[in-house]
């Protein structure tokens, strides 16, 4: 049960990130989670949004190069060592986390949502299920 993340190519200079968020705002898109990875001359903004299809259309119209990428959203207990516990099991299952960032935490459930790109989604899902760790659905993220 992976969720879809939108990755956008950005030049690494002032204003490009603003243009991206402005475009999304004007298109009525709500960001649920976001991270920016950078190199010397370009960057990739990775986002979870409330309306995937609409976001893809809006970005395409504004000529942002983007791609959809399956990631998993993991509901990690918001306690000390909560994330470490999950990653420990991933390591044992030989699942590599390529990158990770956090979404808004949910106070109500006492959990933090971590967005992860892993090498083996299936293995990660099985590990989490064995651990009784919940995966967060796309709709749930959208409504957060």
């Amino acid at each position: 049960m992976s969720v879809k993340q939108i990755s956008v190519f950005l030049e690494n200079r002032p204003g490009t990130l603003y243009n991206l968020t402005k475009t999304l705002a004007d298109g009525g898109i709500d960001l649920r989670a976001m991270s920016v990875a950078e190199t010397k001359d370009f960057g990739i903004a990775r986002m979870i949004v409330d309306d995937l299809d609409k976001a893809a259309t809006v970005l395409k119209e504004a000529e942002f190069v983007n791609s959809l990428m399956p990631v998993i959203a993991v509901a990690v207990d918001d306690v000390k060592g909560g994330l470490a516990r999950v990653l420990d099991e991933f390591a044992k299952a030989d699942v590599n986390v390529e990158y990770m960032y956090s979404a808004l935490a949910s106070k109500a459930t006492g959990q933090a949502y971590m967005i992860m790109r892993v090498t083996d989604t299936e293995a990660a899902e099985k590990t989490l299920s064995d651990m009784n760790v919940r995966l967060v659905r796309q709709e749930e993220l959208a409504e957060m």
């Binding site: 990755s7 190519f9 990875a37 190199t39 370009f42 190069v65 983007n66 791609s67 790109r117």
Partner: peptide, 15 residues
Amino acid sequence: EMTPEMFTDNIGEIE
């Protein structure tokens, strides 16, 4: 210019 065909979420690959 970056194109949709060239773009990937993987920075290492682009580099």
